[in-house]
Amino acid sequence: MITTISGHARVLGAGINTDVNCSSKYLPGRDNAYIAQRAFEQVVPGYAARFGQGDIIVAGKNFGINSSREQAVHIMRMMGAAAIVAPSFGRQFFRNAINNGLPVIECDIAGIADGDVLEIDLAAGRVSVAARGIVRSVPPLPAAIQSLLAAGGLIPFLQQHPDWK
């Protein structure tokens, strides 16, 4: 089971629509690899180019608002995202992230800057940036969600637990 995640923060603003910024909704016919190289370009130029394997998306409130495409999460995983930290998420985005094995943590992001090394303890419910003395407690993810994430998402979870036990 994944309990701690550590990686560099990559910061985005508030109210990001992931259909617009991270899917093919407005780029018909483009594949995920193409979009992964240009994701969030409209809101933070150079974002995808800087994004590395294991980095953590740190965003303002309502991340994924108004978006519903699961594809956005597939692309974020392809970019190498290990988790997303934001004060709040769009409802459907929150589901899609968990269903596709990407941890989403609801947490205040004040004071966290791009490039900071972030530590997330999912089981204990803690987000910290040691270099800045930031330690924030968040509600620990419920067991049902932790087991989905541990399996890598809902589909792999059901492959292992066909009757959802």
Partner: peptide
């Protein structure tokens, strides 16, 4: 989304 409905059909 689609994943959710797949889970419902199966479980």
């Amino acid at each position: 989304e689609g994943t959710d409905v797949s889970a419902v059909m199966m479980t």
